[in-house]
Design a protein around this nucleic acid. Sequence first.
DNA 1: CACTAATTGTTCTAATTAGAACTTTAAATT
DNA 2: AATTTAAAGTTCTAATTAGAACAATTAGTG
Lengths: 156, 156
Amino acid sequence: MKSTFPTVLRELLRTHQAFLSYAASHVQKLDLTLPQFDIIITLGNTDGLPYKILGEKTLITKGTLTGVISRLEDKGLVQRDASKTDGRSQIIRLTETGYALFERTFPEHLLFINRLFDNYSPEDVINLEAALKQLHEAVISLRSEEQEKIVDDTEA
Amino acid sequence: MKSTFPTVLRELLRTHQAFLSYAASHVQKLDLTLPQFDIIITLGNTDGLPYKILGEKTLITKGTLTGVISRLEDKGLVQRDASKTDGRSQIIRLTETGYALFERTFPEHLLFINRLFDNYSPEDVINLEAALKQLHEAVISLRSEEQEKIVDDTEA
DNA sequence: CACTAATTGTTCTAATTAGAACTTTAAATT
DNA sequence: AATTTAAAGTTCTAATTAGAACAATTAGTG
């Protein structure tokens, strides 16, 4: 059996790692970590987001999110407000300083990142996205199969 | 300007994360973390590898590697031997227990992972790998450009 | 050979990470 | 309405992560 594991999936890990370190190199100049800047970006052009949504958009789990938000709060870039409609929920929004940082740095960051695709044809972009989605869906599909197995075992 | 950043690259992050959590779900049953199991796999079928090579293959930086190896050593799965040819270098190899674990678990792990590609045609695999490599090379190319800039600044 | 530069691995720090236990509040059920 | 169940955030723990400083050794240079 020819194993696709070492070749294709290693390449996924390598590409991911390379991209993160590329993106981080830009963000570090702002004295922010990548997750921190990701929060800033995600909050930009919104009127604040509940904790939960913020975690879903940035792919940061809630236990981690508390720490990241706290550090941004310490830096004065973000603030927590209690939700008016749900007593459990916190709304995170950019402070004035945070919004100013967003406006000042986001366009340049976008250029920096999009430079990766300078030599891409439109088809290349489509292919990449399609290939990633195909793998993503395969993972999700198998993961839910595994989940069902566990449920079956519990019931049995 | 149409931004490729939020769509394609988010998909890279999501796919990567989904894959890791899928792989981790399997490895956790062995009471190992993914990086730890990655080391076991990488050492399997070798006669031991120097620290440096091990880090390159697993994409783990040296500061991190020390901790991961130490934990595997504590579990008795791996041992450190001083290199005979280089006084600075350590050779990491599987212990008997470690090798037994590798032999017992690796084939099943491979099956578990390769299941992701059950519905892939050969072209699908080739496309995925090509798309990832294209992005990877774009990152590397830009990263080295950035590096040159820094050198220029230092010289100027 | 002497000196400098580079490499190997360890140690340390600050941050992120997932997961679990926990508190508080909301929703659902009886 | 009372009770149970679920959801939102916080806190805690163990591990990973990158990066920087450091000691020991090797390689390269004059």
